[in-house]
């Protein structure tokens, strides 16, 4: 278990890396803006560069940061809950519901704001469906919850394919970008940032309980953790965080699985450090990935989900082999 001072230092380091990644996202682009001009724009100075910063790059960067944080936090929570390092925020089928909602909205030609709203409604309906069907007595509940999630996910996948096959040619591109995950159309990052704050506020007080839960259900119960209550609370929290992320930016893959993993390889498995570190790490990864996504083959843009996988997979494999595969 890391010492308190070590935790503070690590988080401060990650915070400064996060600030650095945001600064990079604001300065880099088809119109490079000097750091001093970025600072002036943030402080309220008007101008053409300031418009680009305040109306395009800042909401996009903050939105990307929030979504990365949400996905990584949800992933970290799911990994403890399932006691499986392969846990993923999409296990419960939330992203499938969001995809069906968003694609339906795109099919009838609604504006971006409505697409996000429809995605959140879809995600929330699936959440209600999965939790409603999985509700029951006894130790079966967890596997039933997961199975329900997997099946609902498969059903949503079929619905998504159906929508794609009947969609008119001109909306296909946008749909595919949405499915792969894209932060280009985030105009208002505040809901996602707010949800991220709420998520941290609820999960940090549970961190040591989750530490004990990761040692096994019986051990946790013997050490005074209300296992059933903690589980449901955490599942629901993870589901809400995932819903918030996919409603904002589509189903960006890899962040939720890989960031908690990376953090665990570097920092160990103490949730009191792992949860906030995952939030920062997820945010940093997505901000960097999005900055790359809009610059590597500019003026054309890539969906950020492709970049997260392209950066994440080799990095992760390298670390896994270097550390001797400690999960």
């Amino acid at each position: 278990m890391p010492e308190h001072r070590h935790v503070t230092l690590t988080l401060l380091l990650l915070l400064s890396l996060a600030a650095g990644s945001l600064a990079m996202a604001l300065t880099v682009g088809s119109l490079p803006v000097a750091l001093s001009d970025v600072w002036a724009a943030l402080l309220g100075k008007q101008g053409a560069a300031a418009d680009i910063i305040m109306q395009l790059r800042l909401p996009r960067a903050l939105g990307a940061f929030a979504c990365g944080g949400l996905l990584a936090l949800a992933g970290a929570l799911m990994q403890v809950l399932l006691r499986n390092p392969l846990g993923d925020p999409y296990v419960l089928g939330i992203s499938g519901g969001a995809a069906v909602g968003a694609l339906c909205a795109m099919l009838v030609g609604l504006a971006a704001v409505w697409v996000n709203l429809a995605a959140f409604v879809g995600a929330f309906l699936v959440l209600l469906l999965v939790f409603g069907l999985a509700h029951g007595e006894g130790s079966w509940v967890q596997s039933r919850l997961l199975l329900t999630g997997v099946i609902v996910s498969a059903g949503c996948g079929a619905a998504v394919s159906l929508i794609l096959s009947i969609a008119p040619q001109q909306s296909l591109h946008g749909m595919l970008f949405w499915i792969m995950g894209d932060v280009a159309y985030i105009s208002q990052p505040l809901p996602a940032l707010f949800l991220l704050g709420v998520g941290l506020l609820f999960s940090l007080p549970l961190a040591r309980d989750l530490n004990v839960l990761s040692r096994g259900e019986i051990q946790a119960a013997a050490l005074g953790v209300s296992v059933t209550r903690l589980r449901w609370l955490t599942y629901f929290l993870a589901a809400m965080l995932t819903a918030g992320a996919v409603a904002t930016a589509g189903s960006i893959g890899f962040v939720g699985l890989v960031v908690p993993h990376l953090m665990r390889l570097f920092l160990g498995n103490d949730q009191r450090l792992l949860l906030p570190a995952s939030v920062l790490g997820g945010g940093i990864l997505l901000v960097l990935a999005d900055t790359l996504a809009r610059t590597v083959i500019a003026p054309q843009q890539l969906p950020v989900g492709v970049l997260t996988a392209l950066i994440g997979a080799p990095l992760f494999l390298y670390l896994l082999t270097r550390q001797g595969g400690r999960p």
Partner: peptide
Amino acid sequence: AQQRGYCAQQQHDAFAATVLETALIGRH
């Protein structure tokens, strides 16, 4: 949990942890 300790028949460790960390869990 402050009054009674319970040691089950088997322990399963899903995640990596050191021996010291595992013993410290008892302070929870």
